[in-house]
């Protein structure tokens, strides 16, 4: 009998020792414990590289450990639907990509989350779309590209990352603006599309500024931004060429719905501090990311504007979920 009770006590002790981390509810000073930062895309991708670069500075700014957690799948939807079901205490935050979190709920019957559920906290970077071809491509300018596409509808193939991504939408917008017909071919990621261009399997790529710095074998025909990009200063913007095309992928962080504003502000300040760190900035710009500094309200406003725009675009294409 005695033996058994001894064992039982030991068990209890072990349970108590191992089961630490019992949460403290009252939080007068956020953050009191480590913050989980959900990344919805594969390691090695743009979202991951950004988070890895932020990591050190973010821990300094928050004064707490930041743990990067991957929740990958469904083009990000798995991670975001997990986020909106998490406790709204600010200890679970997630990378938030536009246009993904706007277009997915529009285009899918049940994406597992809605655009409004994500509480926008801070938007830190933008990678504008670029239309790029191989160095030895016959297309020297955007004009030549458009002219050829006009003559041979659907014969010009444009590769990009995934369906309904910024690259896909930018291709559609270009088709509308220039009145041409292209064939968009989605690949599993912006990196996976590059060999298809280099091997001559697609005529052009609608990719991002972040890919240009890495691949000097590509020539940029135009940048979908209101300003030229430092990674390809010689390439004109679409606007300079006469097409009002501004498209790209915004990356920021969001928290679960119902998170108190004070906590959102603390997080936003921390990310802002990271974003204004010159060391961090130079690393990011070197990699082709354009820094933006949108706090909770501005970020929310951006999302609202874009939602209206994308809803209209998808309605025209008959791509809204029925």
């Amino acid at each position: 009998m005695r033996k058994i009770s001894k064992v039982a006590i030991l068990c209890l002790v072990i349970i108590m020792v191992t089961g630490t981390g019992v949460s403290t509810l009252a939080s007068n000073k956020f953050p009191e414990k480590s913050v989980n930062y959900i990344i919805c895309f594969n390691p090695g991708g743009e979202s991951d590289i950004t988070a890895r670069l932020q990591h050190k500075y973010l821990e300094e700014a928050l004064g707490q450990k930041v743990v990067i957690v991957y929740k990958i799948g469904g083009g990000g939807a798995i991670g975001w639907s997990e986020l909106v079901r998490s406790k709204p205490d600010g200890y679970t935050i997630s990378g938030d990509n536009l246009p993904h979190t706007i277009v997915q709920p529009l285009q899918r019957k049940d994406a597992g989350y809605t655009t409004e559920q994500l509480k926008r906290t801070y938007c830190f970077e933008l990678t504008p779309n670029v239309l790029a071809v191989r160095q030895d491509s016959p297309f020297k300018t955007l004009e030549e590209f458009v002219e050829y596409a006009k003559k041979y509808p659907e014969a010009v193939t444009v590769g990009g990352s995934a369906s309904w991504s910024a690259g896909h939408l930018a291709t559609i917008e270009l088709e509308h603006l220039a009145d041409i017909k292209l064939t968009y071919i989605p690949f599993t990621g912006s990196g996976a599309a590059v060999p298809a261009l280099l091997g001559g399997h697609v005529s052009a790529l609608m990719t991002y500024t972040s890919m240009i710095g890495q691949h000097p074998e590509m020539r940029v025909l135009a940048v979908a931004s209101d300003q030229r990009s430092p990674v390809c200063p010689d390439a004109p913007t679409f606007q300079e060429c006469g097409y009002d095309l501004v498209e790209g992928c915004y990356r920021g962080v969001s928290v679960p719905p119902g998170t108190p504003d004070e906590i959102v502000n603390i997080l936003a300040e921390a990310f802002d501090k990271v974003n204004r760190n010159p060391e961090f900035q130079s690393k990011m710009e070197e990699l082709g990311y354009q820094m933006v500094y949108l706090g909770p309200e501005e970020y929310e406003k951006l999302v609202r504007e874009k939602t209206v725009y994308y809803t209209e675009l998808l309605r025209e294409l008959d791509a809204l979920a029925k």
Binding site: I4, V7, I14, T18, V67, V69
Partner: peptide
């Protein structure tokens, strides 16, 4: 009781290794 004990220890050990040392949630 001995079986429960083994279970508690083994799972506890793995729990610690995974969450603390390997940082796996």
């Amino acid at each position: 009781m001995a079986s429960i004990f083994i279970a508690a220890v083994e799972i506890g050990a793995f729990y610690m290794v995974f969450t603390r040392a390997l940082n796996v949630p």
